[in-house]
Design a protein around this nucleic acid. Structure first.
Lengths: 251, 251
DNA sequence: CGCCTTATGTTGTCGGCGTCAACATAGAGG
DNA sequence: CCTCTATGTTGACGCCGACAACATAAGGCG
């Protein structure tokens, strides 16, 4: 279960062989756009910090959070372990950078969802779905973002800013809904946003952990609970108005 | 941050001195009730499995999840490392036992909340508050229960049973609400329970991680979001009925 | 009682991990 | 050319989980 010695050993073997090359730095198929500076060797590595971050994200995505090892990420880049310490204070700093990257992508996804749906209630529901979809598509990344690391407010300003921006998108959407008279005004947008955030976060976490039935698509699965949630976020559960029919929203 | 070498070293020192005793087994101040069998030495340790589990829970509660080390828990009990392997397959098995214990306690708390409130809508709201309160009172324990470990369905039957029981309490409550005509009947109790579970789970996680303002008591804190959530779980956010006043539920 | 089987606990050891110190190297700038 | 500094490497340390081999105690059985 936890001991994946065979693939990890293979991985390290690969890395060792890759390290045999004197310094074949430019073979990585990244940055396909115009060459940033020149095609010469430039420096020790070029932009190791970015490469380390990208490799960490890739490692987490492919092999899970437990496989993220300073030694492994260094080896995958054909660079020695501890090379990372010239760009990150320690492992938690690297994870902070990974989290910041995740919050930035999450914010982009929310922004896109709201804009593509044209705002309003459809935009709000699209944001909720996009949030859960992001978590399901990047489970390990999402787990790092909300992991035990840096859980308190001690993390660096960049990470904090990225997280705040993603949350603010939700606040702004709710403020717009209130302004347009489609959302109740008896609570501040921030208070409602915290609640909505908790809802989608809970669904995302349960979905990621496989605690909702089936593979996300069937009845009771993550998608089902998500659509249920975004509908109920606007209608409630209890019969506060007995005259209310069963399905106020058209499916 | 992550390196707490000083207290850990002290702890190990304590343990080493404790281990100097030949086998002073019975000095632990537990099981204050009637002596289970006899006051003689009985066996190698007596009931090491239970002692290991309790010590693991205590370690997690006092020093956090990261401090849970097979060596540390063994040392705290005056027993050698690897003694644990006679009672648990590996570390994840110990964590499974900790999770099972947590789900049992959580279920007890939910049951008590529902019963003490006399069922109905107050009972339902009490369950929600009790759920979040349990998580806030036992953050590390809760994190283990929903941690990366055993997230898939591979964990042992006892853990699965304890988790299912806690969830079933919620389902039963919602079924009762539906039966009494106070909850909408357009969805099955299980579907609604999944949604409610996600809501309280999300609040609990955000609260545990310190992602809600202040120390849980002030405006916007965990308690605020929780009460907001249990109210909105019954009323909804959007203005589906414009004639609806602002506060349908008293406080 | 003496022996043996089995359950339980210990010691030794291994590989992996994060991290630090010391050393090496390459680019920049005088 | 020489030096300075940024960057990368090697070696080592302590901690961790896990396994193998060994030690010991409880209990069954003659």
């Amino acid at each position: 279960m936890l001991t994946v010695s065979t693939p990890r050993a293979m991985l390290l073997e690969m890395a060792v062989t890759a390290r045999k090359r004197p310094k074949a730095q430019g073979l990585r198929p990244k940055a396909q756009g115009p060459r940033p500076k020149a095609l010469k060797v430039r420096y020790h590595h070029g932009d190791l910090r970015r490469a380390l971050l990208e490799e960490a994200v890739r490692t987490i995505r492919d092999d899970g959070t437990a496989a993220l090892t300073l030694r492994a990420v260094g080896a995958r880049l054909g660079v020695s372990r501890t090379a990372l310490y010239r760009h990150f204070a320690d492992k938690s700093a690297l994870l902070d950078a990974v989290s910041e990257d995740g919050f930035r992508r999450l914010g982009d996804a929310l922004e896109r969802a709201w804009a593509d749906a044209g705002g309003g209630v459809p935009g709000f529901e699209a944001m909720g779905s996009a949030y859960v979809r992001f978590a399901l598509d990047n489970p390990s990344h999402y787990r790092v973002m909300f992991g035990v690391w840096n859980s308190r407010e001690h993390h660096d300003p960049a990470l904090r800013a990225a997280g705040t921006r993603a949350f603010q998108l939700l606040v702004d959407a709710l403020a717009a809904l209130q302004r347009d008279g489609v959302a109740r005004r008896d609570e501040t947008p921030v208070a409602v946003a915290r609640y909505v955030w908790a809802v989608v976060h809970g669904i995302a976490m349960l979905g990621i952990d496989g605690r909702l039935p089936d593979g996300a698509g069937g009845p009771g699965g993550v998608r089902d609970v998500t659509s249920f949630a975004v509908r109920r976020l606007g209608s409630g559960i209890f019969l506060t108005e007995p005259s209310l029919p069963s399905a106020p929203s058209a499916r």
